[in-house]
């Protein structure tokens, strides 16, 4: 191998390592992130990785079928604390499991004396089981040939949902109330200086009888596209670790829900989001990622929640 080829391979390997090292859980990110909603993805050379992350959403804004903001008595602040682990089943495929603890809070100002009061409850969310398989690998000699992954996931409805809530302010709602199955594909052009990716997932909820009604949420289609580049900071002669900067947009569309097998008019959901993130390889096998994601950044937010989430995540390769 020539020296130039070796350097190129080394750079590519480093980029890929950082790219696959960690990802945000609270947002979707094509290829290097959670286009499939899994909190972490594994690079082919990795066999076992762990993850921990905290995502804070200081304000939640529910919207109605016409896109108007709804006044709500529910939680107006949420903190998600997530742990996850991933194991490689082969050089092309891996499996991850993730569990989140949700803390719902509601702060309100007393009209009479303007004093603020707050209440919060914490509980386990629905666990998530995900997997990915690389159908087509990146090729050094063909930079325009994308990496293609197929992905799938399952999220059983184990946590308390709004249908079992006993709190008038819904602070004890931690799960969706429906088993969810997810499939998708993820394309990534990782050989270019500015890497780009696109991912599409379909999430199908399993119908369940809730409050005496056979309910079935619509099919969720999520499209994610992102741009990623490496930035090397060199100040005062000190070479710092390269930082991976990423930005992207998401589009979520959910078809009409059904109640007792009848479609519910006006129940479609749509929300567009955007995110930026900075990913730093902190130690030899660790990485830290900071992300800001905004749901409802453009377009109409319909029957969904507009919010800004700040998240900090850490991941470590154990093997």
């Amino acid at each position: 191998m020539k020296l130039r080829q070796f350097r190129f391979s080394a750079v590519f390997f480093s980029m890929s390592l950082i790219c696959f090292f960690s990802s945000g859980y609270a947002l979707a990110c094509a290829s290097c992130g959670s286009g499939g909603d899994e909190p972490l993805v594994l690079f082919p050379a990795e066999t076992f990785k762990i993850y921990g992350g905290v995502a804070v959403t200081p304000q939640l804004e529910s919207t109605g079928p016409d896109g108007s903001t709804l006044q709500t008595a529910g939680p107006n602040r949420r903190v998600n604390s997530t742990v996850a682990a991933g194991i490689a089943l082969s050089p092309r495929g891996f499996f991850t499991v993730a569990q989140t603890v949700v803390t719902n809070s509601r702060t309100r100002t007393n009209n009479s004396d303007a004093r603020k009061s707050s209440a919060s409850k914490s509980g386990a969310a629905d666990p998530s089981f995900s997997g990915r398989y690389t159908v087509m690998m990146l090729q050094l000699s063909r930079p325009l040939i994308p990496q293609i992954q197929i992905l799938g996931g399952y999220r059983p409805a184990l946590a308390r949902s709004i249908h079992e809530s006993s709190d008038a302010n819904l602070l004890d709602v931690f799960g969706s109330g429906f088993d969810e199955v997810r499939v998708g594909a993820d394309l990534w052009l990782g050989m270019l200086s500015v890497k780009t990716g696109v991912a599409m997932t379909l999430t199908e909820s399993i119908a369940a009888r809730r409050s005496g009604i056979l309910l079935k949420p619509g099919t969720l289609v999520r499209l994610t596209t992102s741009l990623t580049m490496l930035s090397t900071v060199d100040h005062f002669g000190i070479n710092l670790q390269p930082v991976k900067l990423a930005a992207g947009v998401t589009a979520d569309r959910r078809t009409q829900a059904a109640a007792d097998r009848e479609l519910v008019d006006g129940s479609e959901q749509s929300v567009n989001g955007a995110f930026i993130s900075a990913d730093l390889a902190a130690l030899e096998s660790d990485s830290v990622k900071f992300t800001v994601a905004r749901q409802g950044v453009f377009g109409v937010v319909k029957n969904a929640v507009a919010s800004t989430t700040w998240s900090l995540a850490w991941a470590r390769v154990l093997r």
């Binding site: 087509m136 293609i148 594909a185 599409m200 009848e262 479609l263």
Partner: peptide, 26 residues
């Protein structure tokens, strides 16, 4: 690879179509 890609999107398209098929809610 392209064969897999074509097969995947064919499956996704079928799944999407099935969601709106007449067997579902009316």
């Amino acid at each position: 690879g392209f064969f897999f890609l074509a097969a995947l999107f064919f499956a996704l398209a079928n799944l999407t179509a099935a969601c709106g098929a007449s067997d579902g809610p009316k």
